[in-house]
Amino acid sequence: MRRLPFWPTLFVLAMVALMVGLGIWQLRRAEWKEALLARYAAAEGLPPTAFPAVPVPDENLVFRRASGHCLEVTHWDARAGRNRKGEQGWRHIASCRTGGGEGPGMAVDYGWSRSSEAPKAPALGGPVSGLIDFDRDRVFILVADTAAPGLEPSEKPSPLNVPNNHRAYAVQWFLFALVALVIYAIAVWRRPPAGPGAKPQG
C-alpha cells in the first residue's frame, strides 16, 4: 500500500490551489477587460468633447473624439508607431502650451514619419481635433485627424490594439495545476510501496 508523504503532498496541493486561484483571478480580469473594451468601442460614437484640461484617469474618455487648442509647441517627442497604412516608423508627439500659466498643457500626436527627427514646424499650433489615446503611462494623447505639414496621419487609435489575453493566461494556470498533479501522481506511484511486504532498497 502506498502512503502519501505528508509534507510533499501538502506543498503540491498548496501550489495547485495557488495556480487554480490565479486562473480564476485571470477569468475575472477577462470579464473586466471585456466590459472595458466594450466601453472603448462605444466611445467614438459619443458626442465630441473637449480635451481634458487636467489629466484625469477617466477611462470613459479613451478613444473618444475631442478637440483642443495648442497655443504653442514647447517640445517634440518621437515614439515608435505606425501610420494608417500599417507601416512602422515614428509618431511625433508635441507637448503643447494651452494657457498662459504653468498648467499641464496637452499632448498632440501630429503625425507619422520614417525619421525620428522633430518636424521643422516650430510655429505649429492652433485648433486640433482627433481621437483621445493614451500611452503606457496612461497619459492622454490627442491623435490629430490631420497631420502636420511633412507628416502622415498616425495610426488611428482603436480598442482592437488593446491586448486582452486574460482567458489565455487562465487556461495556462489551470494547465499548470493539472500538470503538477499528474507529475506528482506519477512520482508517488513510482515510489516503493510502504508496509511489511515492501522490498528493501539497496
Rank of each mutant, 00 (worst) to 15 (best):
P193V: 10
Y184V: 02
P104T: 01
L160I: 04
E102V: 03
L178R: 04
D145R: 11
D77S: 08
H75K: 12
M1S: 11
R84W: 03
R191S: 13
Y110I: 14
E117N: 09
P47E: 05
G99R: 10
A80S: 11
V108I: 12
P52S: 02
L71W: 04
I24R: 00
S154H: 06
W189K: 10
P193Y: 08
P127N: 03
S158P: 02
A94M: 06
L131D: 01
A30C: 05
P149F: 00
L22D: 00
L37K: 14
A144C: 02
T98V: 11
T146P: 00
L124Y: 05
S95M: 02
L18A: 14
A170S: 13
A53R: 14
F140P: 11
G126T: 10
A53I: 05
N60D: 13
A80V: 01
W189V: 07
L37Q: 10
S116F: 12
R91H: 14
D58L: 12
K156M: 13
G195A: 04
E34A: 15
V171R: 11
S154N: 06
V54Y: 15
V182F: 13
Y110W: 12
R167H: 10
K156H: 08
A121E: 14
P159G: 05
P196V: 10
G150Q: 05
N60I: 01
R29T: 03
W189G: 13
W7Y: 13
G81Y: 06
Y169G: 09
G21T: 05
G23P: 05
A148T: 01
K33R: 13
A185G: 12
L181P: 09
P159N: 05
L4C: 04
P196D: 08
S129V: 08
S116A: 15
N83A: 09
G21H: 00
A194Q: 13
V62I: 15
A177R: 00
V171E: 07
V73P: 08
M19R: 00
F174V: 11
A53H: 12
R191Q: 14
G100V: 01
R82V: 02
G81V: 03
R97N: 08
T74P: 01
G197L: 12
L175I: 10
Y40I: 07
T74V: 12
V54D: 15
W76P: 11
